[in-house]
Nucleic acid binder design. Structure first.
Lengths: 193, 193
DNA sequence: GTACGATTTGGGCAAATGCCCAAGTCGTAC
DNA sequence: GTACGACTTGGGCATTTGCCCAAATCGTAC
């Protein structure tokens, strides 16, 4: 074997990251404690401060790893859909899954808020989102969008996040019906499939 | 005098509510402690639990009072603007003021998140927003909006909140430029005033 | 076997937390 | 003056918190 000790260590570290990702949506960013995350990961409390300098450090690392993966896969899915109307339908389908009360949505919003008080998190998260926006803008331009692609990309991303936010309060919001306004916003003819 | 004792009591209670409203954006919903809010209000720590059953109770009351007033005045402003294009311009002007990192925006988002774990807050906040949405829908219909007014109102409210959310990360987001997509969404001719 | 390094353990400590409560203040009613 | 009621005070208590650390674990190298 190569290195059992360091390998197990990395696995434990990953378990802590995973535990943090599941706990933030459950108890809130500030509600994640040393003992809680250790218990969830199935390790002794001391392990947390062996692998991470502080609980906040753990949360930042876990959150950024999550959003990074999420945005990457989202960009990939968009690129795979050259027809803009088709992509909007797919996005709305995704919105149905990310209902606003699901762990992923809650984690992202928690990170938005936490970044207000954590400059390092703020900068790194802003970087991830800026990169994502430019991907969407490039994709919009490729699909032949008429108009200011970067602005449309920003507005689209903001609108989708806003819908998630509102759905967390009112799960009955009709996401499908929002295809209309969204299509209008992007200048797509009203027509369905 | 009518009642000095009860009157001073109500004033103190109000000071606690005000202190809570300023503190939530600063330290987060979960970061507001008994002693912190008491110090900010200029009273002894014990006062908090004399006027409120718990710190959470104080935060819920303070938050709902704030959002209630905010939504009411917003609805009034909209009603005062029968021209839909003019109203969109005004809304975007307001968005410039609520930058995403300002206390009002942060408080609202904190409340969204807290409502996930506080059913009572969730229900009452959802009620306030539903009422606001129906006001906007009625206003849209009156201004002659072509299409599904309730859906457009929901989408509009969500989009605006989404912009606030994104601006908290990227304060340089060009709000004015978003007038274009928003106008398209509401079916308003491109032209300004 | 012995030594080593990385990892894990579980207890410990100072600090902070929510909530409580006996004592105190201060006008009003009698 | 005396009693009353609403409000305020500031200390106290049990609990929880983040972080620390000496000791234990365990596979590897010699």
């Amino acid at each position: 074997m190569a290195s059992t000790s360091a390998e197990r260590g990395r696995a434990t570290r990953q378990r802590l990251l995973d535990a943090a990702v599941t706990l933030v949506p459950e108890v809130g960013w500030g509600g994640v404690t040393t003992r809680l995350v250790a218990e969830r990961a199935g390790v002794a409390p001391g392990v947390v401060h062996y692998h991470f300098a502080s609980v906040t450090d753990l949360l930042v690392a876990a959150g950024l790893a999550f959003t990074g993966g999420l945005l990457d896969s989202l960009a990939d899915e968009l690129r795979a859909r050259p027809r803009i109307g088709e992509a909007v339908d797919w996005l709305l389908g995704e919105l149905s899954r990310y209902g606003g009360t699901d762990p992923a949505s809650l984690l992202v919003v928690e990170m938005f808020l936490a970044s207000t008080r954590l400059p390092e998190l703020r900068e790194r998260l802003a970087g991830q989102i800026a990169a994502f926006r430019s991907h969407v803008a490039a994709w919009l331009a490729e699909t032949g969008y008429q108009g200011d692609a970067p602005t449309a990309a920003a507005m689209l991303a903001a609108a989708l996040d806003g819908v998630i936010l509102h759905r967390s309060l009112d799960p009955d919001l009709d996401v499908a019906a929002m295809a209309g306004p969204l299509r209008s916003m992007l200048g797509i003819p009203e027509e369905p499939s």
